[in-house]
């Protein structure tokens, strides 16, 4: 696979001369999952948008660089809380939408293989309206994988799913995104402790690392160390709130 870089983000972010966060100094490690937590409105999604090179409401003063010095935005793909599937296209066409949008001929074999890996082969001709929330999020994952980019930015992609489906999606995403540089924005300490190689807590004052158990993700939901870590993270978030 293409090199998945480490990304470092240093700087502060102001909206109308009001400091939203920072100065922060955070790093998203190469080929690993970094989970970003913090209270609502602190600017977690803004960080994703900054990395993706999308418009934001304020000004970022600082720099976002990859360790190989190459541009980041074109190597990053994005998955949101909402599946963002196009309701007028079937699953197959939705998965290849990236190529279509670039005016290129899609690789249908690869699309089929990915749809198979997310377990949706039987639903290839269905439109999003006919799929359950979990299926739609799996389709969105296949679309993200179809872009085959080394950096993947996830904005609460599992938060709207029921507990069982969410755990399944976490397993699937951890498996399929292995080896990529992943930044996961989440509100859920359990999710962060399950999936993260690192956890970063974002607040007005900066970005701080949270210590995780010495085991590798994906951690089992009943792993005692993970549960302890999750409990203390939750306690920390509640104190901070």
């Amino acid at each position: 696979m293409i090199y998945a870089p480490t990304i470092t983000l240093q700087g502060r972010y102001d909206v109308d001369d009001h400091r939203l966060f920072g100065p922060i100094d955070m790093s998203i490690s190469a080929g690993q999952w970094t989970c970003l937590l913090g209270r609502s409105g602190v600017g977690k999604s803004t960080i994703l948008r900054l990395i993706l090179g999308l418009e934001t409401a304020g000004d970022f003063i600082g720099e976002i660089v990859a360790d190989d010095g190459q541009p980041i935005a074109k190597r990053a793909s994005y998955m949101a809380q909402s599946d963002l599937l196009l309701p007028w296209l079937n699953l197959h066409e939705n998965v290849v939408i990236g190529s279509r949008l670039r005016g290129a001929e899609p690789d249908f074999d690869q699309a089929n293989a990915l749809i198979d890996r997310v377990g949706l082969s039987d639903h290839i001709k269905k439109k999003p309206g006919a799929l359950s929330g979990g299926m739609r999020q799996r389709a969105a994952l296949a679309r993200t994988l179809m872009e085959n980019r080394p950096i993947v930015l996830l904005d609460e992609p599992f938060s709207a799913l029921d507990a069982g489906t969410r755990a399944d999606m976490q397993d699937l995403a951890a498996e399929l995104l292995a080896g990529r540089t992943v930044l996961l924005v989440t509100h859920d300490p359990a999710e962060a402790c399950r999936l993260g190689h690192q956890i970063t807590l974002l607040s007005e004052d900066g970005a701080n690392a949270w210590d995780l158990p010495n085991t590798m993700p994906i951690r089992q939901p009943d792993d005692p160390e993970m549960l302890r870590s999750q409990a203390s993270l939750l306690a920390h978030l509640r104190v901070g709130a």
């Binding site: 999308l54 793909s77 196009l86 949008l101 670039r102």
Partner: peptide, 17 residues
């Protein structure tokens, strides 16, 4: 936004989204 991150051209964005 999603289309932009995928590198969509303006024409394709208009036609397909």
């Amino acid at each position: 936004d999603l289309a932009k991150t995928m590198g969509a051209s303006k024409t394709q964005m208009m036609l397909r989204i």
